[in-house]
Computed example of a mutant assay.
Amino acid sequence: MPTEAQLIAEFGASKMTVHRALQELSSSGLITRVERVGTFVAKLEAPTPERGKIGLFLPTNEGFLEIKLLAGIREAAGDDRQLVLYATDNDPVLEAEMLTKAVGEVDGILILPTGHPRVSRRLEEINESVCPVVCLDREPTSAKLPSVATGNYEAAKAGMEYLTGAGHRRIAYFGLFAMEMSSLSDRYRAYHDVMTGIGVEDPTSLSRFIEARDSADFFVELRLFEDALFRLTSGPEPITAAFCVNEHYLGVLLEVCHLLPPDVRERFEIVSFCDWPSLSFPSVRTHLIRQDARAVGRLAAAKLCRAMAGEKLPLTRDEIPASFEPVPFDPNPFEPSRRAFLFDPGAGGVEL
């Protein structure tokens, strides 16, 4: 580094200011001062896969998806690496606050992002200049970051093609309008592509974007689904099948399927992404798309550990295939032994 005299001349600062600045840099371990030799920039060791803190940003640590992700992350990170959990509740404001808090506290970040554009840009800045970031399960559509996710488009396309192959042409879509997240945008894109491929000119007319609500507002959400289902099954061309973006929408839809006209209900089918464990379904044939969230978490954590050890990760997405589980036709779908309720409004949960 330049000498104190050279720094004073270059920046026009006083001797005391330059001396104090160099002392602070030395105390912070950023430079090394050797008497009668000179001042040198300290060599900083990058974190290795065996040490360093990982900041884990999840909406909650209690959902089925999050539990599976966490299991895979722990497998790849090992017991020696500390995980610091930041629960964002899918709130971009809270997410931004926690990112600010995490900078300086952790050596790498794994995040299930909200996808908000402003927070996404902040994630890009952190990944470029502060510490490595890897996105879990989804990536913001407005940012370029290393990520590991389910192969949502291919899985959704397989489910939709199963329905069209079974003869369905009027297929409704139930989901959340949050196209800033790749997981949801990929699923809707697959729905839209398959529907236009069979000649449906305007798939949006069969799409219902309903905001997910917590258990306290369950009956409000139930009324919204009842109204949507009534409108979609009224008229000369009722829907005969539905695609649900996740298990939440599947659960509410199944609760209102008793509103289907008997002739429609007999042949009605649903395809849905679902992270819940094995369930039995009431009255309607339901085919599930299962994500391997554990594998997603494992691969994402392995990538982050490599980045924390100094590897430069490409700004690309790795995908883990999902499995599609069609069920065979049941000639007696309404037998009492097959009935099970996914939602218990009183408890606000699911019966497993």
Results as ranks from 00 to 15, higher is better:
Thr3Ser: 15
Glu4Met: 15
Gln6Trp: 05
Ala9Tyr: 02
Ser14Asp: 14
Met16Asn: 15
Thr17Val: 09
Val18Gln: 06
Arg20Glu: 09
Ala21Val: 15
Leu22Ile: 08
Leu25Ser: 05
Ser26Ile: 01
Ile31Phe: 07
Glu35Phe: 08
Gly38Val: 07
Phe40Gln: 06
Lys43Gly: 11
Leu44Val: 14
Glu45Tyr: 12
Ala46Val: 14
Pro49Ser: 02
Pro49Leu: 02
Gly52Phe: 12
Lys53Val: 15
Ile54Thr: 09
Ile54Gln: 04
Gly55Leu: 11
Phe57Asp: 03
Leu58Asn: 00
Pro59Phe: 03
Pro59Lys: 06
Asn61Ala: 13
Glu62Ala: 13
Leu65Gly: 11
Ile67Ala: 13
Ile67Glu: 13
Leu69Arg: 06
Ala71Leu: 09
Ala76Gln: 04
Ala77Phe: 00
Gly78Trp: 06
Gly78Met: 00
Arg81Phe: 01
Arg81Ser: 04
Leu85Ile: 12
Tyr86Gly: 07
Glu95Met: 07
Glu95Ala: 09
Lys101Met: 11
Lys101Pro: 07
Ala102Pro: 00
Gly104Lys: 12
Val106His: 08
Asp107Gly: 13
Leu110Ser: 00
Leu110Met: 05
Leu112Asn: 15
Leu112Lys: 13
Thr114Glu: 07
Gly115Pro: 10
Pro117Met: 05
Arg118Pro: 06
Ile126Asn: 09
Ser129Phe: 08
Lys144His: 15
Leu145Pro: 02
Ser147Gly: 14
Glu154Met: 08
Ala158Val: 12
Ala158Lys: 10
Gly159Met: 01
Met160Arg: 09
Tyr162Asn: 04
Tyr162Ala: 05
Gly165Val: 11
Gly167Trp: 10
Arg169Leu: 00
Ala172Ser: 12
Ala172Gln: 03
Gly175Ala: 02
Phe177Pro: 10
Ser183Lys: 12
Asp186Trp: 12
Arg187Ala: 06
Tyr188Lys: 05
Arg189Ala: 07
Tyr191Gln: 03
Tyr191Glu: 03
Val194Ile: 08
Gly199Asp: 04
Val200Arg: 01
Asp202Arg: 09
Pro203His: 02
Ser207Gln: 04
Ser207Phe: 04
Phe209Ser: 10
Glu211Trp: 11
Glu211Thr: 14
Ala216Phe: 13
Phe219Asn: 15
Leu224Ala: 13
Phe225Thr: 03
Leu229Trp: 01
Leu232Thr: 00
Gly235Glu: 09
Glu237Phe: 05
Ile239Pro: 01
Phe243Gln: 00
Val245Ser: 07
Tyr249Ala: 06
Gly251Glu: 03
Val252Cys: 02
Val252Ile: 13
Leu253Asn: 01
Pro261Gly: 02
Pro261Leu: 05
Pro261Phe: 00
Glu266Gln: 15
Glu269His: 07
Ile270Phe: 00
Phe273Thr: 00
Asp275Arg: 02
Leu279Ala: 06
Leu279Phe: 10
Phe281Ala: 03
Ser283Tyr: 14
Val284Phe: 02
Thr286Pro: 08
Thr286Glu: 05
Arg290Gln: 07
Arg294His: 08
Ala295Tyr: 05
Leu299Phe: 12
Leu299Arg: 09
Ala300Phe: 03
Ala302Gln: 06
Ala307Asn: 04
Ala307Asp: 03
Gly310Ile: 07
Gly310Phe: 10
Pro314His: 06
Glu319Trp: 08
Ile320Leu: 02
Ile320Val: 12
Ser323Cys: 08
Glu325Lys: 14
Pro326Glu: 01
Pro326Met: 06
Phe329Met: 11
Phe334Val: 13
Pro336Ile: 08
Ser337Met: 13
Pro345Lys: 12
Gly349Arg: 09
Val350Arg: 14
Glu351Ser: 14
